[in-house]
Design a protein around this nucleic acid. Structure first.
Lengths: 136, 136
DNA sequence: ATGCACCCTGTAGCAACTACAGGGTCAAGA
DNA sequence: TCTTGACCCTGTAGTTGCTACAGGGTGCAT
């Protein structure tokens, strides 16, 4: 299949597919006589793996390691679990951080009803860290 | 004060301060005879405003608008509230998204106890979107 | 006079794409 | 046959918000 079809069937931007090839995340496919990329089912599966991992927030580096494991089924899979676990820890931390931001912003928002910026609580609070309830 | 002192007193990287000046977020300060940047209290306050806003996750563009309002106290502050509110909405959405990821990853992690990668549930699940419980 | 901490400019790198510019290919319709 | 339009190619530059040099100047203490 040509790149446009691969793009549609995986929901991946064409430029992104070429980008993945350039950085060595996807293998370079065969070319047609007209120098068009020609993909097979294995390419589609690999790309689906990459996209799914990206959707789950894994970095390209992490995906490289995961693909490497996937390419060597005889290896120990402890590493895959380690990557996923450490990624999960980061996500949990990020959620906690965003919840702090959310609470801080909630206290700021909805206080301005068209007054002058001089009396704006939002602007005041941004300039004055001491007004914060939480640490960030 | 020189840039090093401003850096320490606001907890901002020196390179970051110069970067903010370059992109026009901070005004260019006076220079000493030796061409060193020389900052006053107004610079420190403006930088604190910027840093605080960044900590709360506002983008540089949003901060530009907020600073602009802060520089024109006679203006209507509805815009500041709009920026903060829309930012809050994005944070809430991001939290929801990360919670989905967290739940999905939780179901993946901790299943590998040193088996071969061929039987790895993590790798299998990454390759097979249909195994997911949630949409992403 | 020499070492060291500090400052300067300018450029390049990071992640993970995205967006062109400027060109080639191919099949269908007039 | 010619042309139109959809598709493909490479290569480069832009995005965000910094960070990290390289290669040099300044200022003060020993």
């Amino acid at each position: 299949m040509k790149i446009g079809e691969l793009s549609k069937s995986t929901g991946t931007n064409i430029e992104t597919i070429r980008y993945y090839e350039r950085i060595g995340l996807l293998p370079a496919p065969d070319r047609t006589a007209a120098n068009y990329r020609s993909y097979g089912n294995d390419h589609r599966e690999r790309l689906a793996f990459v996209r799914h991992s990206r959707e789950l927030g894994f970095t390209i580096q992490e995906i490289r390691s995961l693909l490497d494991l996937s390419d060597h089924p005889e290896r120990d899979c402890v590493e895959a679990d380690r990557i996923a676990t450490s990624h999960l820890v980061q996500i949990v931390a990020k959620i906690a951080q965003l919840e702090t931001l959310r609470d801080e912003l909630s206290g700021l928002v909805g206080r301005c009803r068209g007054g002058a910026a001089a009396d704006c609580r939002v602007i005041e609070a941004l300039g004055n860290h001491a007004m914060c309830n939480t640490r960030h």
